[in-house]
Amino acid sequence: MTIQSDLETASPLRPSKSAFWRQAFLDMAAILAWGVLLLQYWLTGKIKLLLHPNYIWLAYSAGFFLIGLTIVKLVQLSLVLKARLRQTNQPFPITAPHLSLFPPTWSSLLLVVIALFGLQFVPQPFSSQMALDRGVTETLTMTRSQPQAFRGATKPENRTLIEWIRLLNVYPEPDAYTGQKVNVEGFAIHLPDIPETYVGIARFVITCCAADAYPVGLPVKLPAGDRSAYKPDQWFRIEGEMITETLADKRQLVINAKTLTPIPTPANPYEF
């Protein structure tokens, strides 16, 4: 294996000729690939599925920085090359002492491969199955305990799903909301513990990045028929009003839907 033999013969401070150029090339490829990946995610909007909007600027700034770093490195390498062409015994620049867990080539290769894969990868919004696995919190206990989330001034029909949930969290009595108009968007979810004539409407909430996404949702009483017409993961705009019902032995707030309009998956499926 040539990689192995090169690593063995290269001195820790001054790499052999082929190792120097291979490592330099791989490093540049890795940095460039990650710079391009971050910018591609930003420009194509993929990043909205991954990060909270507050942190997107960090990602694309890092992308610009990495691409800038590649350019500077490229200029510097071309100077090395020029110097070597003029004077063949010009030594390669030394490198800082390097401590590594695996051979540097492996790390670079891993970075390049993952970045190339990432460029192809199209993140999907988390599915309703994922929401079920994570446990949709109908009673919505897992929300932020921020009293300022209580927005009494908001008209009921303007509240988003997460605003309803925060409201419930602050004042959990379902009767308090009976008759209020509802107009929310979310994806359908088939909750196993409620009857077939109900469907769940849910959204994922993220606070920083997709890694901490958690689902919140409310049950919806369908105007007619059963939920088989409302496939899981399809996004709907639901209009109706709030009622209180006892589902799964629990008195809870339910949306009594008048209309369920299928809508395309929003570019940013999360709520904050």
Binding site: L38, L50, L58, A59, S61, P123, Q129
Partner: peptide, 24 residues
């Protein structure tokens, strides 16, 4: 399949979130 996509989405979200901080 959805699990695979979810895993990859989590994976890339952790990376995209962490790389700027790693850079700093």
């Amino acid at each position: 399949m959805t699990h695979l996509n979810a895993t990859l989405t989590l994976f890339f979200s952790l990376l995209v979130e962490a790389i700027p901080f790693l850079l700093i």
